Computed example of a mutant assay.
Amino acid sequence: MVLLLIRTYFPDGTNGKLESEGRFICYTIELPWHDNGKGVSCIPEGEYLLRRRYSVKFQWHIEVVDVENRSSILFHPANNAQKELRGCIAPVTKVSGAGLGFQSRQAFFKVKHLVYKALERKETVSLIIQSNPSTPLNDDKVEK
C-alpha cells in the first residue's frame, strides 16, 4: 500500500492532502518547513515506510520510519500544528488555516484503520511526501 501526501507550505504551517491509489483519505497538518529542524519542522519530502507503534501517550498509532536525523515521527491526532506537534503528521477532516484543522481524531482513526489492515495482510506500507506542484517548497515561500 502506498500513501501519497501532497503538501502546500505556508510560513505558519504545512497543509496536505493524503490519498491512496488516487482516492482521497483526509487532509493533514504539520509544522512549517525549517530545514528539518528537530521539533520545529515538518520532515523532508521523500519516501518512508510506516509501521505500528504503541506509546502510553498516543496508544496505538503509526510511526514514519527512518527519517533522516529524526526519530519518533508519528501520525497522531492534533488540530493545531504549532501547539501540538513536534515534527509529526496530524490527519484532519477539515483544514481551517495554515497548520490548523478540525476533527483530527476522526481522520486519524480512518488512516490508522487503512494502514493497520494493510499491515495485517503483510503488505509493506509506504508514504511518499511531495510538494503540491503549484506551491513547491523553495526559499522564497518559507519564512526563515
Results as ranks from 00 to 15, higher is better:
residue 87 G to H: 07
residue 79 N to S: 15
residue 133 P to Y: 10
residue 43 I to Y: 02
residue 71 S to R: 15
residue 16 G to H: 01
residue 128 I to A: 03
residue 59 Q to A: 13
residue 96 S to Q: 07
residue 11 P to K: 15
residue 5 L to T: 02
residue 16 G to F: 02
residue 50 L to F: 08
residue 108 F to K: 01
residue 104 S to R: 06
residue 34 H to K: 15
residue 103 Q to R: 13
residue 113 H to L: 09
residue 43 I to M: 08
residue 119 L to T: 04
residue 21 E to S: 10
residue 28 T to L: 08
residue 8 T to M: 11
residue 25 I to M: 07
residue 57 K to S: 10
residue 56 V to R: 14
residue 39 G to C: 03
residue 128 I to S: 04
residue 118 A to W: 03
residue 15 N to T: 12
residue 67 V to F: 13
residue 77 P to F: 09
residue 48 Y to A: 02
residue 139 D to S: 10
residue 36 N to A: 08
residue 64 V to C: 01
residue 141 K to C: 04
residue 104 S to A: 09
residue 105 R to Q: 09
residue 36 N to Y: 11
residue 117 K to A: 06
residue 6 I to C: 03
residue 141 K to T: 13
residue 108 F to A: 03
residue 102 F to G: 02
residue 85 L to G: 08
residue 46 G to K: 05
residue 132 N to F: 04
residue 123 E to V: 00
residue 122 K to S: 11
residue 33 W to N: 06
residue 11 P to E: 07
residue 56 V to W: 09
residue 102 F to I: 01
residue 114 L to W: 00
residue 37 G to W: 02
residue 143 E to I: 14
residue 143 E to Y: 15
residue 67 V to E: 11
residue 26 C to Q: 09
residue 19 E to Y: 07
residue 5 L to C: 02
residue 97 G to A: 07
residue 68 E to D: 15
residue 118 A to H: 05
residue 51 R to M: 04
residue 117 K to L: 04
residue 83 K to C: 02
residue 73 I to E: 12
residue 144 K to P: 01
residue 2 V to Y: 09
residue 21 E to N: 12
residue 85 L to T: 05
residue 77 P to I: 05
residue 49 L to Y: 10
residue 51 R to Q: 12
residue 57 K to M: 07
residue 87 G to S: 11
residue 63 E to D: 10
residue 54 Y to E: 10
residue 81 A to S: 15
residue 32 P to E: 04
residue 10 F to G: 12
residue 119 L to C: 08
residue 100 L to A: 06
residue 32 P to G: 05
residue 117 K to H: 07
residue 53 R to Q: 01
residue 139 D to H: 11
residue 48 Y to T: 02
residue 67 V to R: 06
residue 143 E to R: 15
residue 65 V to D: 07
residue 134 S to C: 03
residue 140 D to W: 15
residue 45 E to P: 00
residue 25 I to G: 09
residue 12 D to R: 08
residue 50 L to V: 11
residue 38 K to W: 12
residue 76 H to M: 12
residue 58 F to V: 01
residue 103 Q to W: 07
residue 134 S to V: 09
residue 7 R to Q: 04
residue 133 P to A: 08
residue 66 D to V: 05
residue 74 L to N: 05
residue 112 K to Q: 06
residue 114 L to E: 03
residue 109 F to Y: 15
residue 107 A to D: 00
residue 24 F to N: 02
residue 60 W to Y: 14
residue 66 D to K: 13
residue 136 P to A: 04
residue 102 F to P: 00
residue 57 K to N: 08
residue 79 N to K: 12
residue 106 Q to Y: 06
residue 26 C to W: 07
residue 2 V to P: 02
residue 73 I to F: 11
residue 8 T to F: 04
residue 38 K to G: 02
residue 45 E to N: 12
residue 79 N to T: 15
residue 66 D to F: 06
residue 26 C to H: 11
residue 42 C to E: 08
residue 55 S to W: 04
residue 142 V to Q: 14
residue 35 D to L: 03
residue 123 E to L: 01
residue 53 R to E: 00
residue 17 K to S: 14
residue 55 S to C: 04
residue 70 R to D: 07
residue 95 V to R: 15
residue 137 L to G: 06
residue 144 K to W: 09
residue 48 Y to E: 03
residue 83 K to G: 00
residue 58 F to G: 01
residue 44 P to T: 11
residue 24 F to A: 06
residue 47 E to W: 01
residue 54 Y to N: 05
residue 74 L to G: 05
residue 115 V to G: 03
residue 114 L to S: 01
residue 57 K to D: 07
residue 38 K to Y: 14
residue 93 T to Q: 14
residue 51 R to P: 00
